[in-house]
Design a protein around this nucleic acid. Structure first.
Length: 800
DNA sequence: CAAGGCCCTG
DNA sequence: CAGGGCCTTG
């Protein structure tokens, strides 16, 4: 069995403190999957060992997965338990522990177990519910026994426990210590909350009051104990990380839970303490003869997940090994408590220090990516790496590094290099390395044109046209996209190319140090991929991601308080739609209504994205297990039609997404090799379609020009448009945005135009006789990728 | 060798 | 779109 150190080892450090008491698979409605499809342990979300020990005696996460509804509906009827007993192959780990510790209690359980073992593994749901029931039963029984010990002479079974008075006392003490530590932790946490999220506290306090009022009546009756336990357990199932999809669900079957804003921790702990107190009183009345089940059970859903330890080691340890076990347990307990406290403090400190870096006064470096996140909607201007890319062009040595800004761009650069290393000579490539481009950064050279000219029309392009070498003149008007004017401080168009290091991410500045003034220390390894969180640990990024998205979109770094109010402690226990951590209404406006449904607690997310508002394509046919990531997002194996839809929309922004990019923008997908390549394949297909259309229309244009004018005039490319009124646009929109719910970004139109003109030019100049004449165009188009709007980072399908 | 990309086919 | 083949790249 797991030793305490195993249980509380590094395997689950993060989760412990704020962990859900159940794994990500604890979602109702997820395909029953009786025997097949049992996810290998490897797929179990890391960091849930305790939870599994505690709540999945059988040790298989799939047991719980998807069975909650059934479970909760069934395990309300204690008496049905036997009927549903079908234990199957449990490893008996927990049972044994419990048996060891609660022999009296377990007498009945023993026999039940025997029965269970004989049963076939017919129903996983029943299995799980049975587990829950047993827990409840044990608690009930323990209480009853406490009462018995009080009133009547001890029975045989009871007598056995008489000799354990000392141990029991010790346990009592240990438990007190645990309690104390718990209290301290809570106090600490509450301090944090007070400091960072007063609003939240108030809210939560209110709810708590309400809730306490509600439950006061039933709280006493022992007959409701089962229900209370049920609630405890179910709460534990969802706990923090589950909150935004789980909250409402939980409410639906939790008799007592009331608020979508609940803070589970506080509630739970308070209730637990209260119950514990009650329990102690009861035990006190009962002469202390009762088995100390209360605490154990209460530990189940606990913040610290001590339950696992208690059950796994307390029982086994103390009962089996006596004092030694108790000592062990005590030590383990202390260790864990210590480390838990340390973790909390560490988190708080880190949280505090790091979030201060996001205040409005933070250095530009931290927010230098913001421009690229500005203007989510169509026609948004892109600064970001695009500007860098342009700026560094011609300096082959620094180019790659500079383009690595933003993580995904590193991948992109790889792709670019791949292509440029190809055998074919790309006109685009050749002109880019021409001296004229070297002498002056493209951004400076061309941005005025671009801003003056209509983005879709030719002027900027034709201005550069060399009448005798049309193919060489096909610059890409959108490539040297100037930084948005709305962000002069960040990307002063004039100065940016000259001193990029002054306004860009440290990593980029240092990487471009070869040509600039900054000696700069070795750049931080990989730039924080999509999020401007250079100072945040990855896990923190995960935790903050949602709130960051919204804050980024809001352009305004939130006040620290706001920021902190979305700290991980609270993040996953609050109602998404109104919590600052969730996209505010404006952003939700960009999102699929169905996403808003998700945000309101629906469990639909688990069934795949509901894309495009209309659910055309019947989304949600996903299939596959659900997993809860460290970021609190449910992932699923396999891709749904909605994922496809989202991917298509993403194509408007990125034609060559790296697998990392895909992972960032599909947080609800559990990526494995298969899924990744499938999605890459999608984009490959998208590109194919795109290029085919481009070629088709280019050829048609050439034909038309030939027939109409006799010979295509030079510079005619400039007249090639992909306006929203064109057939080509219609076709593209139809393909990538079938439902037309999403507004095709202007940027995509520009890219299409570039591609179209490239094709046109290549065809007209006869380059298409070269077997790989398209490669050059691919390479050009590849460079026109732009960042994907942040709305795509959210699970679900953006609209707008 | 794996990952990606393109091409072709169904 | 998915599969398979082929190629390039690291």
């Amino acid at each position: 069995m797991d030793s305490p150190t195993d249980l509380f080892g590094d395997s689950a450090p993060e989760i412990h403190a704020f962990a859900p008491a159940l794994s990500s698979t604890d979602l109702p409605g997820v395909h029953p999957q009786p025997s097949a499809g049992r996810p290998p342990p490897a797929f179990r979300p890391p960091g849930f060992p305790l939870i599994h020990h505690l709540l999945q005696p059988g040790g298989a996460s799939r047991r719980i997965g998807g069975q909650l509804n059934t479970t909760l509906s069934t395990h309300r009827h204690l008496e049905d338990r036997n009927l549903e007993d079908d234990g199957g192959e449990r490893d008996g780990q927990v049972e044994q522990g419990m048996e060891g510790g609660e022999e009296g209690v377990m007498e009945e359980e023993d026999s039940l177990l025997e029965v269970k073992k004989r049963h076939s593994d017919a129903s996983l749901a029943a299995e799980w519910s049975q587990d829950v029931l047993k827990v409840k039963r044990m608690k009930l029984e323990s209480r009853q026994r406490d009462g018995e010990a009080d009133g009547e002479a001890s029975e045989g079974g009871r007598r056995r426990e008489g000799g354990r008075e000392g141990k029991r006392r010790e346990r009592e003490e240990l438990k007190e210590q645990l309690e104390e530590a718990r209290e301290r932790l809570q106090a600490l946490q509450e301090k944090v909350w007070r400091a960072f999220g007063e609003k939240h506290m108030a809210e939560e306090e209110k709810k708590r009051m309400r809730r306490n009022g509600n439950r006061g009546a039933t709280d006493r009756g022992s007959r409701d104990v089962g229900m209370m336990e049920e609630e405890d357990i179910t709460e534990g199932m969802y706990d923090e990380e589950d909150n935004d999809s789980g909250e409402m669900e939980k409410e639906s079957f939790s008799l007592l839970s009331a608020s979508p804003f609940d803070n589970f921790h506080t509630h739970k702990r308070r209730e637990e303490r209260q119950k514990e107190r009650e329990g102690r009183m009861e035990r006190g009345r009962g002469g202390g003869g009762g088995v100390h089940l209360e605490g154990m059970m209460e530990g189940a859903g606990l913040w610290l997940d001590c339950g696992g330890l208690v059950r796994g080691d307390w029982d086994g340890g103390i009962e089996d090994e006596g004092e030694e076990g108790g000592q062990k347990f005590a030590q383990a307990l202390k260790l864990e408590l210590g480390s838990a406290v340390a973790r909390v403090i560490d988190r708080v400190l880190r949280l505090y220090t790091e979030t201060t870096d996001f205040t409005p006064s933070s250095p530009p470096a931290t927010i230098s990516f913001l421009p690229s996140d500005v203007g989510n909607d169509a026609g948004r201007e892109r600064g970001g790496w695009m500007g860098l890319l342009t700026r560094g062009r011609g300096e082959e040595k620094t180019r790659g590094k500079e383009e690595k800004m933003g993580g995904q761009d590193g991948e992109r650069e790889k792709q670019l290099q791949k292509m440029s290393n190809g055998s074919i000579v790309s006109p685009g490539q050749s002109h880019r390395t021409e001296p004229s481009d070297l002498t002056m950064p493209l951004a400076v050279q061309r941005s005025p044109d671009i801003r003056k000219a209509h983005p879709l029309l030719g002027p900027p392009l034709s201005a550069h046209l060399n009448p005798s070498h049309p193919n060489l003149s096909l610059h890409h008007p959108s490539l040297p996209r100037p930084p948005p004017l709305s962000h002069p401080p960040l990307l002063p168009p004039a100065s940016q190319p000259k001193d990029p290091s002054s306004s860009f991410h440290p990593s980029s500045s240092s990487s471009s140090s070869s040509s600039s003034s900054f000696p700069a220390p070795p750049p931080p390894p990989p730039p924080p991929p999509p999020l401007p969180l250079p100072l945040l640990h990855y896990s923190m990024q995960q935790l903050f991601s949602r709130s960051l998205h919204h804050t980024q979109l809001a352009h305004l770094p939130p006040s620290r308080k706001d920021y902190l109010s979305s700290d991980p402690f609270l993040e996953f226990s609050s109602h998404p739609s109104s919590h600052p951590s969730f996209p505010p209404l404006p952003l939700l406006g960009h999102l699929d209504p169905s996403l808003a449904r998700h945000a309101h607690g629906g469990r639909e997310r688990e069934r795949g994205m509901r894309g495009d508002g209309g659910m055309r394509g019947g989304g949600g046919m996903d299939g596959g297990e659900l997993y809860l990531t460290a970021g609190g997002v449910y992932t699923q194996e396999g891709l749904s039609p909605c994922h496809l839809k989202k991917a298509k929309l993403m194509f408007f922004y990125t034609r060559y997404p790296s697998s990392n990019t895909l992972k960032t923008y599909f947080p609800d997908v559990k990526f494995n090799r298969c899924v990744t390549s499938q999605m890459i394949k999608w984009f490959s297909n998208f590109r194919e379609f795109f290029y085919i259309q481009m070629e088709r229309f280019a050829r048609q244009a050439v034909r038309e020009a030939l027939t109409r004018d006799g010979a295509p005039r030079l510079g005619r490319e400039s007249q090639l448009r992909v306006g929203r009124d064109t057939e080509l646009y219609r076709i593209l929109n139809m393909h990538y945005n079938k439902s037309n719910v999403y507004q095709v970004p202007e940027r995509f139109i520009e890219v299409s135009e570039v591609a179209l003109r490239e094709f046109y030019s290549a065809i007209w100049t006869g380059r298409d006789s070269d077997p790989c004449w398209k490669k050059g165009i691919y390479k050009i188009v590849c460079k026109l990728d732009s960042p994907v709007p942040d709305a795509f980072r959210l699970p679900g399908c953006p609209v707008g």
